[in-house]
């Protein structure tokens, strides 16, 4: 393994994973993420993106390969990662505030301390006034923001977001993307995002990792050199279009 500089937060080193069945899923996935970097992972449906996240998040053991965080082995560890699954999974028996504090309470923090930690984030997440509401009272976009708040408040080293906006209508999704890009600037998050939306990947990311079909490995990494904050108008810029086209080309390539 090549020596890496200090500028890596997360290293994925030749991750392999197979389930019983004809084809392995992860066939040596290798890439890394710098501190504060926003990296999107795209790939054909069923190629193993969620599996990759489960392996990184320590929920499943890889057959081989390693996950490093800040240079230390974190394979099979859950503590460095805050994981946001595809569904929002807000629990109906908890208020919105108590849903966002779940991770802190599980980690042993008192309910009161956890609430004090989460409450100040409500304004930034557009949830002010909904602290004691129940999840069914929230719109789709608000539910995703509450789920994201629950994720980030855990203050873990790396955020893993699995298609967080996949279930939203396109207008809400665009709003959420702009909002996420804005809120990200106020924090020091290192983010890994799965999406099937190329435009979303380009709009939000510093870098996009393209995975091939199952058994999957990294096909290409594309750096997105667009100024921040990202604005909606950029979507029509030639540079944006060029990146999109490159990604589409790699995805379409069936060889």
């Amino acid at each position: 393994m090549p020596e890496r500089g200090h500028e890596t937060k997360l290293v994925l080193d030749d991750l392999r994973k197979a389930y019983p069945g004809p084809l392995p899923v992860l066939d040596g996935v290798t890439f890394d993420v710098a501190p504060g970097e926003f990296v999107s992972v795209i790939g054909p449906s069923g190629c193993g993106k969620s599996t990759l996240f489960n392996v990184i998040a320590g929920l499943e053991r890889p057959d081989s390969g390693r996950v490093l965080v800040d240079g230390a082995d974190a394979t099979g560890h859950v503590e460095p990662f805050a994981y946001m699954p595809q569904q929002d999974l807000l629990f109906p028996w908890r208020t919105v505030l108590d849903n966002t504090t779940l991770g802190l309470e599980v980690a042993g923090m008192s309910r009161r301390a956890a609430r004090e930690r989460a409450r100040p984030l409500f304004a930034e997440f557009g949830l002010t006034g909904f602290e004691s509401a129940h999840p069914y009272e929230l719109s789709g976009g608000m539910r995703q923001r509450a789920a994201l708040l629950r994720t980030v408040v855990q203050d873990r080293a790396v955020l893993l977001l699995d298609e967080p906006f996949g279930a939203l209508d396109s207008l809400t999704r665009t709003d959420m993307q702009t909002w996420l890009d804005g809120v990200r600037a106020h924090f020091d998050w290192t983010v890994l995002l799965i999406t099937h939306d190329i435009r979303e990947a380009v709009f939000l990311s510093d870098r996009v990792v393209v995975l091939g079909p199952r058994p999957t490995r990294v096909r290409r990494e594309v750096t997105v050199n667009l100024p921040r904050p990202r604005e909606l108008a950029m979507i029509t810029s030639p540079r944006f279009a060029a990146v999109e086209e490159e990604l589409l080309g790699v995805l379409r390539d069936r060889s």
């Binding site: 320590g58 929920l59 859950v78 994981y83 999974l89 629990f91 779940l102 599980v106």
Partner: peptide, 25 residues
């Protein structure tokens, strides 16, 4: 939900806490 279990596990929840916070309610 399997995903709910995974979410709790990612938070570091023991089997008992998974039960208390998700399975039971």
């Amino acid at each position: 939900d399997r995903q709910a279990t995974n979410l709790l596990r990612s938070m570091g929840a023991s089997r008992w806490k998974q039960f208390r916070y998700v399975r039971l309610p």
